[in-house]
Design a protein around this nucleic acid. Structure first.
Lengths: 348, 348
DNA sequence: GGCTGGCACTCAGTACAATTGAGTGCTAAC
DNA sequence: GTTAGCACTCAATTGTACTGAGTGCCAGCC
């Protein structure tokens, strides 16, 4: 199934060139070494001599699909070469043992959403040997089931909101005036009446009075609604960041990649950006962050009832095993969707 | 201030040997190279020739403080050598710019406890160039300010408990029987009456009736109390894991260390173990995990009103800058204690 | 007795040349 | 259009010699 969402639509190559390109990419992914004409000639079974392959490779290099580290070496794929390869990849299927592993995991996993996502990221990383990213759904569309104001002391209140998807937000308020137990309880009561059943996106009619209760309520609602526009609502779980050390050579690259992974907002942005561009694979420069120019990222959205509910992703070197990675990410995203979506038959 | 809590009390060395050992350690920390007799003779100002230094070094090597990578190289410290060095280190003071940075940070930081701790870990890591660990307090001693049961649907309830320290725990219940709104609300009311003002350690008199409300209440209390014994209550924030790539050479080491850092429970265990052994520095094998045998860990407890409230730590190579690291960890732990402890004059 | 200068010795690291071999580009013949 | 043949390139490997930092030991000195 050719996926054709690439930004620079690669002019289609004739059959032989395509075969050669794919052979080069496949072998380089496997061996991490430059690939020579002779091994292509023998492995890819076009009945053709190395010399012929060579002249085709020259042409592939001219067109920007391949590159040569130095004159007397084989070819390695460029980002464009990988892109062609990925676009013309038929989607693979997950190996049976991995399918079992997945099924097992989701059959037995318990606990809060966060824990499940966290563990999923570890699992996905173990399955693929790449670093895994799991984005939790934003609660933009979940309705509020409870909103409560807890009086910690005279000028510290904690706003705790519970959503229909089981997520909980807390936020502290520090009003300038003193708040006694009664005021807080009354504000809490009003908040509940005001917010239950709404989403973070619904407009809410806040009281315009000037008493302390009304001020508290206004403050709480504002805090809550202010939360959404920032990407803050998204949770990211990163599993197997130690894989970075295996995937890349050169301390400096490892450091750069790790330090990107530390910035969770950046990771969220990256994945969401890919999703919004309709990309399921970003290769090298396509990723959009210079320090990640030797990386490839595979993402798969998680969709529940047609609505986006998160995503899973994998980060590896450009010479990553795309087929496996895409299969794994896809399978995990489906399992997640089923796990959290068809929650009706949840504990069978 | 000699710190003498080391497990194998090092027999004291005579003044000259001590000076030499310290010079070797200091220089090796600085240069990462084996240190030769001549540079010690010229840098440490004991008016003595390299030859004399050499014979002392032989004896230091015999006693296990130094080691030689190969015959014709200088000496590097063993774990025991570092231990002696650390034990005889006078506690340093933080540099003025760093003190300012810290003061600035804590003067301006806002937001939830978790956010502050998270940011603190990043800050500490930036200050030292090592990986920082910040352990959040357990809420074992905080009293419950609110306990609420939210009815997500007929057999999914969410237990949300708010503690006096502003932390929130959530946990889902999946009773086998159907729960309607009223039952849930009643259980919630009873829970509140039962739990408010208690800590997770206080015994609680649960209702022994057999109706659904009582069952829910029992279930909720059990879930809540079951939580503590696991280290689950501790939160860890790890900042600057990318520093690992700089601190160690050898991909394999980097991978091992990173994969340890991924296991948060393990990190918590490690730090708490050190604290309980009264250690503020663990060197190499003292750390207690084989994969960390080339690491050193510096910890400083955070104490609020005399009670342990968390800890901060730094992880680096055995040749880490102990004085700086200890000073930074100490300063940060004190700032944290002041920030969360003397909360009275909080927003000045 | 402790310190030191002198000396022979060791050995990682470096530098350099020679060799190897994988792989290329080109061309002439099929 | 394909291919065999060939000269060429150049990273990687091997071998050799050299350097120099550092050692251990010892005889003489204070």
């Amino acid at each position: 199934m050719a996926r054709r969402a690439n930004p620079t639509p690669s002019t289609d190559l004739d059959a032989r060139k395509a075969t050669i390109l794919e052979a080069v990419v496949a072998e380089h992914i496997d061996t991490a070494q430059p690939v020579g004409s002779s091994s292509v000639a023998s492995n890819a079974d076009l009945g053709v001599s190395p010399a012929t392959v060579r002249s085709e490779m020259v042409s592939l290099e001219r067109e920007g699909y391949l590159a040569q580290p130095h004159t007397s070496a084989g070819r390695i794929p460029t980002d464009k070469g990988y892109r062609y390869f990925v676009d013309h990849l038929q989607s693979g299927v997950l190996g049976a043992p991995q399918q079992h592993q997945l099924a097992d995991f989701f059959a037995n996993v318990r606990g809060e959403v966060e824990d499940v996502l966290e563990q999923t990221s570890t699992l996905l990383s173990q399955m693929t040997n790449y670093t895994a990213m799991v984005l939790g759904a934003t609660h933009a569309h979940a309705t509020i089931m409870s909103a409560q104001l807890v009086n910690l002391d005279a000028h510290h209140q904690l706003l705790v909101a519970v959503f229909s998807d089981g997520s909980v937000i807390k936020h502290s308020l520090n009003p300038v005036f003193d708040v006694d137990y009664e005021t807080c309880a009354e504000a809490s009561r009003q908040l509940n009446a005001l917010l239950i059943g709404t989403t973070l996106e619904s407009p809410v009619q806040v009281p315009s009075r000037h008493d302390h209760v009304a001020q508290l309520v206004r403050d709480a609602v504002a805090t809550l609604h202010a939360q959404e526009p920032t990407v803050d609502g998204e949770q990211v779980f990163i599993g197997g960041s130690s894989r970075v050390a295996e995937s890349f050579e050169g301390v400096e690259t490892v450091r750069k990649v790790l330090s990107i992974l530390e910035q969770e907002l950046l990771v969220v942005g990256l994945v969401q950006d890919m999703l919004s561009r309709g990309l399921s694979v970003a290769i090298g420069s396509e990723v959009g962050y210079e320090p990640l120019s030797t990386c490839a990222v595979v993402v798969a959205p998680v969709t529940i009832d047609g609505a986006p509910a998160g995503a899973v992703g994998l980060l590896g070197p450009t010479r990553m095993k795309y087929q496996e990675a895409m299969a794994a990410a896809g399978a995990v995203s489906q399992h997640l969707a089923r796990h959290f979506g068809g929650d009706e038959d949840h504990d069978h």
